[in-house]
């Protein structure tokens, strides 16, 4: 069964007809040619498909495209402006926060969303005092980024990149 939906993807308004079974991830990758979000597991277990959905980081593999009609999607590609990388992207480059690059767009969207969450004062599992605004130390970064697996093992560099971008 098909349904017509409109999405705003990386600033562009796109209207398309999708099978109701199509996930947001597959709609982006296979229907719209937006391959920046990656499919690593297709079950919300790796984070490679993370995009900013209406401003918040979300796994695009576990939500149907049809349920996101009228939503705003920003991918890692859309974070860069006029060929200029986003500060988080620049920090990943500076700190070699990746190797194969497959988890990277998801890591970066996740990091951008996560930094906003910290700015909004959201606590994490490792935040000692739930009443105080969290301080973004390495332990906080590691915990908050744990939904993004990296098999090349770039975590230590990802943490330095995010620490640097947050400063």
């Amino acid at each position: 069964m098909d349904a017509e939906i409109t999405l705003r993807v990386d600033g562009q308004r796109r209207t398309l007809s999708v099978d109701t079974r199509t996930t947001l991830l597959d709609a982006l990758r296979e229907r719209m040619g937006v391959t920046s979000p990656k499919k690593g597991c297709d079950h919300g277990q790796c984070g490679a498909c993370t995009v900013l959905l209406d401003g918040r980081r979300a796994t695009s593999c576990l939500t149907f495209a049809v349920a996101n009609d009228d939503s705003e999607v920003v991918t890692a590609e859309g974070l860069a402006e006029d060929e200029r990388p986003h500060p988080v992207q620049q920090a990943f480059l500076d700190n070699d926060g990746f190797q194969c690059g497959y988890c990277t767009p998801g890591q970066i969207c996740s990091a951008v969303g996560m930094l906003d969450e910290v700015k909004a004062g959201w606590p994490s599992h490792v935040t000692e005092d739930l009443d105080e605004p969290p301080e973004l130390d390495d332990e906080e970064i590691r915990e908050r980024m744990s939904g993004n697996l990296c098999r090349c093992g770039a975590y230590a560099n990802i943490v330095s990149a995010i620490r640097e971008a947050a400063e």
Partner: peptide, 13 residues
């Protein structure tokens, strides 16, 4: 730069 923006295209892409 292609990898941090996700524009590097892998096989399936």
């Amino acid at each position: 730069p292609a990898k941090v923006t996700g524009t590097a295209r892998y096989a399936f892409e």
